[in-house]
Nucleic acid binder design. Structure first.
Lengths: 243, 243
DNA sequence: GGAATCGTTCCATTGAATGGAACGATTCCG
DNA sequence: CGGAATCGTTCCATTCAATGGAACGATTCC
């Protein structure tokens, strides 16, 4: 196993539930020997990837700086933020911007009350087939991308999650026709959204944008036009290549 | 030189001006042999730290996900955002939240028009002594921290930058007395700010908060109270340990 | 107060990593 | 348009960065 792979396996252990870890925690989590972990944690701290706190470690500021430079954040999210703020003001919903990564979506920006019952988190991931933003992205993706999602077995998150290939493919066709998609309590019970695709001037799907909230507060007919308009505004300003 | 150090030297080459780089670019930038760079870039791509685009590379989404978990972002910035939004609404300024890292401040959140003449960027750095947020943090830091800043030689960024130890120390004493600090065109000509310290319930300085804008739009007397109040609100909600 | 677990150090051994040489592919420029 | 320059890529003999068992003192737990 390479040194880089070992280092990444260490860094991956840190998450919202485990923000500070010690040598033995990491040795157990990675299966690496304690002296190896000890030496590697020290080196990651020297490189500012981790930060030492007493005898334990946490993720370091350098990762935040690098994260700020990743094109999805530096370019797409930066362009989207003002439009998302406007959408938030007019709809009072929680506005999500997400990109596809493999078979999951990663939330690159969220505007609105983060303490609500909705579990999404900037940097967090959810299965694409179970989210509105994910389904609008899939609707504009090549067949190989859709096949990969279907190959995950389409696990259910609520009883309303689409879990058969037929149901998903019909839904995607409908999204293409209508220009917008929905999460009808498919990722969380009680939570719904209206979503639209963010498409760049070259015609490439870049992200999904959605208005999310408690089901009783989401009016698809009224909000669909708003989110599609906002998605268009964002798409027009995103260059084809996130470089 | 260790493998991790080499990998970090590669990743450090990517910035706002160089978002996509090739094998030879990286070999020149790091001094590493091309086969070494080629193999390492491939491995960083496999680990999702970088992403391959044609025959070149860019920073990968995994770094964004890690960046979202860094406590300064996940905890401090998340707590601060709603208050910063309010401050933005009432003052029309650009609101900065920054933490100290060594002798520089790193901007962990910025609310307001990012296209303005102000060069700050989330994830970006500036010398602490030349910024309002930096000086309010220094005013509440141990002497060793201040000494380290003085040891940098206090470079000037504009003719108004405080560049002698005496001037800086007097300014820090005044900030302690008054409870707020200023950037009087010290980092950029034509740009000023009013700043206040974010102090947690344990009495520890955590961050600096500021209202920033063209000098003519910054009224210290009126805005000082607002930013100090906002900083207090944020400080009260931040736990002592960012864990 | 003793057992369990922590973090830390040492160093003989190992295999991951290196980079010069060479190659085909692509771009540049006269 | 063709040759030079530069690109990315592959090979593999050689090297030294990295490993982890053993052992230790420190700290925590019961």
């Amino acid at each position: 196993m390479s040194v880089l792979a070992r280092a990444v396996s260490i860094v991956r252990l840190f998450d919202t539930e485990h923000s500070v870890l010690g040598v033995s925690d990491v040795a157990r989590g990675t299966g690496l020997a304690k002296p190896t972990v000890h030496r590697m944690l020290g080196e990651l701290a020297d490189l500012r990837i981790l930060e030492r706190v007493g005898t334990r470690y946490r993720l370091g500021l350098f990762l935040f700086e690098l994260g700020a430079l990743v094109p999805e954040n530096h370019t797409v999210a930066s362009i989207a933020r003002p439009v998302m703020n406007d959408l938030r003001e007019t709809t009072k919903g929680r506005i999500h911007l997400a990109v596809l990564d493999g078979t999951q979506v990663v939330y690159v920006e969220i505007v609105g009350d983060t303490k609500a019952a909705i579990a999404s988190r900037v940097g967090g991931r959810l299965a694409a087939h179970a989210t509105g933003v994910g389904k609008v992205i899939l609707a504009h993706s090549p067949p190989a991308v859709i096949d990969a999602v279907i190959a995950t077995g389409l696990p259910r998150y609520t009883p309303r999650t689409l879990h058969t290939p037929g149901a998903l493919l019909r839904e995607l066709a409908e999204i293409r026709t209508e220009g917008q998609g929905y999460d009808r309590e498919e990722s969380h019970l009680g939570i719904s959204c209206v979503a639209a695709p963010v498409i760049d001037p070259a015609g490439q799907i870049v992200a999904g944008l959605s208005i999310t909230g408690p089901t009783r507060m989401i009016d698809p007919h009224v909000m669909g036009l708003a989110v599609r308009t906002a998605a268009r505004t964002i798409g027009r300003q995103v260059r084809s290549s996130m470089s």
